[in-house]
């Protein structure tokens, strides 16, 4: 099993396609960093427009911590597409290439193969996120410096002390890993049903985009379905950056406003992963390989 995981991981990282995702993330991040470095002030002025009529805001607002947050907001919508590129190709890609039949005549069970393939896609997902964290967080910290994190939410603002931010990013990235693994699991499930690469990739992307749009639209009729969409829960990483206040409206360092919400979302995502992977294995075990 371990060598099977090794082999599957090896296969992923020997494919040129794998590096498209890394290149895409790199170029997107560099682009945003460049944009914010050059013109971050106008972006800030725009965001602060409302606030600055009554408040005077001083300090290095556009620091590495905020830059990373801005990027995560943007990128965590796009990264699923990059994950689908690999995860939704795990089975169908081999079926398409014709290697699946040879692979399945080797002395290990289909369940073992499926688990190894899923673990390998998860490793890819995690490495992609680590790369993302490195560029979006550490490189931004290096370019923009660190300071308190001034976060503008839609109905209130949060000011986190500099020494109260980093651990939140660890939490956020761990949560993001869970969210992205859910995407990988979905792509993985869909890849069982096809014998070409494009179908499952497009299907996974479509599901993500469709659900995200439903999650985003603020139309009452959709609001009832929102809690049941996993895309709604994928953005709960943001909750790490909301802080509790005491009765005197003082923010409590090291606190999280809504920890139960994070845990609930995490549990829902975890259930999705288990169900997707289990379904993928169940279907694949019964499948006649005709490719």
């Amino acid at each position: 099993m371990f060598s099977l995981i090794q082999i599957e991981t090896y296969k992923i990282f020997r494919r040129p396609r794998t590096y498209i995702a890394f290149a895409a993330i790199t170029s997107l991040i560099v682009l945003i960093q460049f944009g914010l470095k050059v013109d971050g002030k106008s972006y800030l002025d725009f965001m602060l427009n409302d606030l600055s009529t009554t408040l005077q805001i001083e300090g290095n607002i556009m620091n590495g911590y905020l830059v990373c947050y801005v990027m995560l907001q943007l990128l965590l919508v796009h990264v699923p597409l990059l994950i689908a590129l690999i995860a939704a190709d795990m089975i169908s890609g081999e079926a398409n290439m014709g290697t699946l039949r040879l692979l399945l005549t080797k002395p290990f069970s289909r369940t073992q193969l499926m688990l190894s393939k899923f673990i390998a896609s998860t490793i890819y997902t995690l490495l992609l996120l680590i790369w993302l964290a490195f560029l979006a967080l550490f490189v931004s910290m290096w370019i923009f410096g660190t300071d308190d994190m001034f976060l503008m939410k839609s109905s209130y603002v949060v000011l986190l002390k500099e020494n109260d931010v980093f651990w939140r990013y660890i939490g956020a990235f761990v949560f993001a890993a869970l969210a992205m693994t859910t995407v990988a699991a979905l792509g993985f499930l869909l890849s069982v049903f096809a014998e070409n690469s494009i179908g499952p990739i497009v299907a996974t992307m479509s599901v993500i985009i469709f659900f995200t749009i439903l999650s985003t639209l603020n139309i009452p009729i959709f609001n009832t379905v929102k809690p049941y969409l996993f895309t709604t829960h994928m953005i709960s990483w943001k909750e790490f950056f909301d802080i509790q206040v005491n009765d005197a409206n003082e923010a409590i360092n090291g606190s999280i406003q809504n920890l139960p919400k994070i845990l609930q979302s995490a549990a829902i995502l975890l259930i999705h992963i288990v169900v997707f992977v289990w379904a993928a294995i169940w279907v694949f075990r019964k499948k006649d390989i005709l490719s």
Partner: peptide, 20 residues
């Protein structure tokens, strides 16, 4: 299955392998 397949080698139709 596993014991048997260890002693079998096969080429099934087109000899597709990892092109990359």
């Amino acid at each position: 299955r596993h014991e048997i397949l260890r002693q079998v080698g096969a080429v099934i139709e087109k000899p597709d392998v990892y092109k990359y």
